[in-house]
C-alpha cells in the first residue's frame, strides 16, 4: 500500500471539509473493496476520510412500505433487519449473500453503491426497486446513478447518506457466483410493483456494468411467471466474456437466474 493519510470524520460536514482539504482523497466506509485495492497498489488516495463513525449515516427505517437505509448500514445489519425483512426480504437476502460474514460486518450499502463494481450485488437491487440515492447535496434516481464500470453520478466530495425506495410487491435476487471470487458471475434482481410494472436488473454479466433488461421486463410485466422467461431472447453481444465465463453462458445465466428469481419472489 502506498502512503496515505487517515482522517476520521464524526459528521457529514466534517467529512466534506476533510475531503476538501485533501489532494486526492477518497471516502472509506467499510473499506472492504477499497483497502484490498490499495493493498494491491491499484489505488493510491492521498487521504482517506473514514465515514464509519458518522451517526447520521446509520440506521434502517421502514415506514409502511417506504424504506430508508442509511449509507453506513452494514450488509449484516441489512441482512438481519426485521423491519426490512417484513416488507422487502429480497434485499435482506441479497445483503446476506454479499462476501462472507466478516466482510458483511464491515461492508456498507453506501460503499458498495459508490464503488459500482460491475459484479457487485446492490446495484442490481437499486435499479430494480427504482431506489433514490440520497447524498449530502441531492437525490439521484438509481437509473441515473450507475453510469459506467466503477463510475457513478457522484460529484467530487459528494457523500451518499442513504438510499430510499418503496418496497415492491414481489421481489427476489438470484446470484450465480463466480467459483473463485464468489462475486456475481451473473445476478438478477426482479421486482414487481403493485401496479404490475416489473423491473429486471442484471449484475455481473454486462460489459458496461449493471443494466435492466427490457425484453425480460416486458415479458414478465405481461405474464408474471417463471415460464414467461423461456421465449425472451437475451443478446449475448452486450455481455461480458472473461476468464471465467463466455458471454453466451452469461446470457443463459441471465435467463435462468431471472426464471428462478421470479419463482422465488
Amino acid at each position: 500500500m502506498y502512503e496515505t493519510n487517515y482522517h476520521r470524520a464524526s459528521s457529514i460536514q466534517e467529512a466534506v471539509q476533510m475531503m476538501g482539504a485533501a489532494a486526492e482523497g477518497k471516502y472509506v466506509s467499510g473499506g472492504m473493496t477499497l483497502i484490498p485495492t490499495m493493498r494491491l497498489r491499484l489505488a493510491a488516495p492521498s487521504d482517506l476520510v473514514d465515514l464509519r463513525h458518522i451517526t447520521e449515516l446509520k440506521g434502517i427505517a421502514v415506514d409502511g412500505r417506504s424504506v430508508r437505509i442509511g449509507a453506513a448500514a452494514t450488509h449484516e445489519e441489512v441482512a438481519t433487519s426485521a423491519e426490512l425483512g417484513a416488507v422487502c426480504p429480497a434485499v435482506c437476502d441479497l445483503a446476506g449473500h454479499i462476501g462472507d460474514p466478516a466482510v458483511r460486518h464491515m461492508g456498507t450499502i453506501g460503499g458498495s453503491i459508490a464503488n459500482n463494481d460491475p459484479a457487485a450485488d446492490y446495484p442490481a437491487a437499486m435499479l430494480a426497486v427504482d431506489a433514490v440515492i440520497v447524498t449530502d447535496r441531492r437525490e439521484i434516481k438509481a437509473g441515473d446513478f450507475f453510469t459506467d464500470l466503477f463510475e457513478t453520478a457522484l460529484e467530487e466530495g459528494e457523500i451518499i447518506t442513504a438510499v430510499r425506495f418503496d418496497a415492491p410487491a414481489k421481489a427476489a435476487y438470484q446470484k450465480f457466483a463466480n467459483p473463485a471470487s464468489r462475486y456475481a458471475m451473473t445476478g438478477v434482481f426482479v421486482a414487481r410493483r403493485n401496479d404490475g410494472e416489473v423491473r429486471v436488473a442484471v449484475t455481473g454479466a454486462g460489459s458496461n456494468g449493471v443494466f435492466r433488461h427490457q425484453g425480460l421486463e416486458a415479458a414478465l410485466s405481461a405474464n408474471w411467471s417463471p415460464d414467461a422467461v423461456a421465449n425472451v431472447a437475451v443478446d449475448a453481444s452486450d455481455l461480458l466474456t472473461d476468464l471465467h465465463a463466455s458471454a453466451a453462458y452469461r446470457a443463459n445465466l441471465v435467463k435462468v437466474m431471472t426464471k428462478r428469481a421470479v419463482a422465488a419472489a
Partner: peptide
C-alpha cells in the same frame, strides 16, 4: 480474522487507524 467490537472482521482489510 479477529473480532472487532464483538464481530468477526478481516484484519488484513482494515487499517490499524480505522480500528483505533
Amino acid at each position: 480474522v479477529v473480532h472487532m467490537d464483538g464481530q468477526s472482521v478481516k484484519s488484513c482489510s482494515i487499517l490499524a487507524a480505522q480500528a483505533a
